[in-house]
Amino acid sequence: MKIIFYISFIWVPFSATYSQTSNSYFENEDNYYEVLKRTYYEEGFPNIKFLDVGGNRFDLKSLKGKPILINYWAFGCTPCFKEMPDLSKLVEKYGDDVKFLSVIAPGNPNILSESLQKKLKGLNFQYTHVATNRTFSEYGFLDVYPLHIVIDKKGNLVDLFTGVNNELLEKYIKSLLSSN
């Protein structure tokens, strides 16, 4: 009886978000991220540790003082690649005032590998490419791409959302840069 209960406990949350019959991977993705946002508003956004392609280590707290935009994406994600030129334009326009981070799914690849660095250079994607100390799923994020995380100058979560919406990102950037 305990085993059956345990298995049902694991499958119930997953089956509530996964749909084999819909075009969306997660029927309740918006609700899921609304709950996650509330959690991070109340508890604070985690101090994620990063490693960049140059081998430099840093964390989110060390970036306080500038707004941060994190783009979580995957190589197999067509919308991710379609938005990269527009995201790179944001970097060209606001790169001195905003920190732009690119996290490749699952979040902790060997960012220093020569083959990965060649792929990244070939993209002409201007974000700073980083790996995390843990996978993003360990921070509560679903593997739905692209995921955008907007953090203010003080290190607080402003918003997180999935999908391509570069106009919204630029609106956030302008708002964050105009606030003290």
Rank of each mutant, 00 (worst) to 15 (best):
L87C: 01
V53M: 15
L69G: 06
Y41Q: 12
S88G: 02
R57D: 14
V53R: 10
V103W: 04
L123P: 06
F75K: 12
G54L: 14
L116T: 09
I48T: 05
N124P: 10
E92C: 09
I68A: 10
K121D: 15
D86R: 11
P46I: 02
P106Q: 04
N124E: 15
E42H: 14
S113Y: 07
K64N: 11
V91E: 00
N108V: 03
Y94I: 04
V103E: 05
V98E: 01
A105R: 09
V91G: 04
A74I: 09
K61V: 09
L60T: 02
I68Y: 10
F50L: 06
G44P: 05
A105S: 15
G54Y: 14
L123K: 15
P109V: 00
I68V: 15
K121E: 15
V103T: 05
D96Y: 07
G44K: 05
N110Y: 08
M84S: 01
E92D: 14
K121H: 12
L123V: 07
I111T: 06
G107Y: 04
G95W: 09
Q117H: 10
E83P: 08
S62R: 06
L69R: 08
I68L: 13
G44A: 00
P46Y: 00
L123F: 09
I104K: 09
E83K: 06
N124V: 00
P109M: 06
P67H: 07
E43S: 14
K61P: 05
P85D: 08
G122V: 08
P46A: 02
L69K: 07
K82Y: 11
I104A: 01
D97L: 11
D86Y: 12
A74N: 12
G65D: 10
I111D: 02
L123N: 06
P85R: 02
G76V: 09
S88T: 04
K121R: 15
K99H: 11
Q117A: 10
L69I: 15
V98Q: 03
K99N: 13
E114S: 15
V91R: 03
K82E: 15
N47R: 13
W73R: 01
F58I: 01
D97H: 10
I68D: 07
F50T: 03
E114C: 11
F81T: 11
P85C: 00
W73N: 03
S88H: 03
P67R: 03
N56M: 10
G95P: 11
V91S: 04
P67V: 00
L120K: 09
M84C: 04
L116Q: 10
S115W: 05
F58C: 05
S102R: 02
F58K: 05
M84Y: 01
L101G: 04
G44L: 02
V91P: 03
Q117R: 15
P85G: 06
A105E: 01
K89W: 00
E43R: 15
